[in-house]
Simulated scan of single mutants.
Amino acid sequence: MSESSSGVNTLSGSFPKSHSSQCSDLRVTRTPLSVDHSPDSGLVSTPLPSSRFRFVSWHRLEQCDVTGDQLTCPRVREGPSEEERSLERRRRIREEEGQKWEERLQENWENCLELNLSYQDLGDAFQQENFLRILRRLIRVEKLQLIDNSLTNLSSVCLPRCRMLNLHRNHLVCLRQLPKLPAVEHLCLSENAIGSLGGLGALGNSPLRSLNLARNPVTFTHDYRARVFSCLPKLEVLDGIPKLPEDSLPIRFPLPETTRMCNIL
């Protein structure tokens, strides 16, 4: 009896002890073991069924005289039926359609009713340009949050159905930089850089009920509240304070300062 370099007995007619039970079973079923005759194998016997099963489908082995415990590889069970495959195909189609629908919803800005696009960190001109492109698609939005976005000019945007717009903490310097808001009812412009009331009359035709201009330079204007309420007769609340009786008083224009002349001799 000889032994190869791999430590496996190579004497013809003998097999490793670990496969003795398999050999006895194969003798009973008259299924000879195959021997690897490749040059590199050293004539090492392998505990596999005869080569006559080489091209037999695995799920049809039960029709032969070879049992599962005589195979050294896992058994492959019979595949699913045609009905099961059809159900699996339909399930995958539904999943793909659902995923595509979700993707369409994510890009369907036109149908958004409430949207929060705050804190976008728009530090580049390319980002601001594309952000404005998105805002122009919001033709059905009713509530829009645009807090702390470093926005400077929204005059090219029209929000025909917007009832509430929050532009808190941006970089607007003039009311003429606001978007077109024919249906706005609540507008927040606090903590911007608005220095005058020029352009406020454009909101006179809208149903604006509350306006917040707190912490803007314009709030230091003489008769600031009276001027705002005179331009917006439908306004009810300004900077969080309801309309007061004195807000309806006539505007008192400041007297011109006397010119002082100094003659230098």
Score class of each variant (00 low, 15 high):
1 M>F: 02
2 S>A: 09
3 E>G: 01
4 S>P: 04
11 L>Q: 12
13 G>S: 08
14 S>A: 14
15 F>W: 13
15 F>H: 10
18 S>Q: 10
22 Q>C: 05
23 C>T: 09
31 T>K: 10
32 P>H: 05
33 L>N: 01
33 L>D: 05
35 V>M: 02
36 D>I: 03
38 S>Y: 00
44 V>E: 07
45 S>A: 11
47 P>R: 02
48 L>S: 05
49 P>C: 01
52 R>H: 12
54 R>Q: 07
55 F>E: 14
59 H>T: 10
64 C>Y: 05
67 T>M: 01
68 G>K: 11
68 G>I: 10
69 D>Y: 02
75 R>E: 12
77 R>C: 15
80 P>H: 04
81 S>T: 11
84 E>N: 03
84 E>C: 05
85 R>N: 13
88 E>T: 08
92 R>I: 06
94 R>H: 11
94 R>T: 10
94 R>D: 11
99 Q>A: 12
99 Q>T: 14
100 K>Q: 14
100 K>M: 12
100 K>T: 13
102 E>I: 10
104 R>T: 07
104 R>V: 05
105 L>R: 09
106 Q>L: 12
107 E>K: 13
108 N>A: 13
118 S>Y: 03
119 Y>F: 12
122 L>E: 08
122 L>W: 02
125 A>H: 05
125 A>S: 11
130 N>M: 12
131 F>D: 02
132 L>A: 06
145 Q>F: 15
149 N>K: 05
155 S>A: 15
155 S>K: 14
155 S>C: 05
160 P>Y: 04
161 R>V: 01
162 C>A: 07
162 C>R: 00
162 C>E: 02
162 C>V: 09
174 C>S: 11
174 C>N: 09
180 K>T: 15
188 C>M: 09
191 E>M: 13
196 S>I: 04
198 G>Q: 09
199 G>M: 04
202 A>L: 07
202 A>F: 07
204 G>N: 06
204 G>E: 10
212 N>V: 08
218 V>R: 02
220 F>I: 07
222 H>M: 11
222 H>G: 09
225 R>E: 11
229 F>G: 01
230 S>L: 03
231 C>I: 07
233 P>E: 07
236 E>A: 13
236 E>D: 06
237 V>T: 04
240 G>A: 00
242 P>D: 00
244 L>E: 14
248 S>P: 14
248 S>C: 12
255 L>K: 11
260 R>C: 13
263 N>T: 12
263 N>R: 14
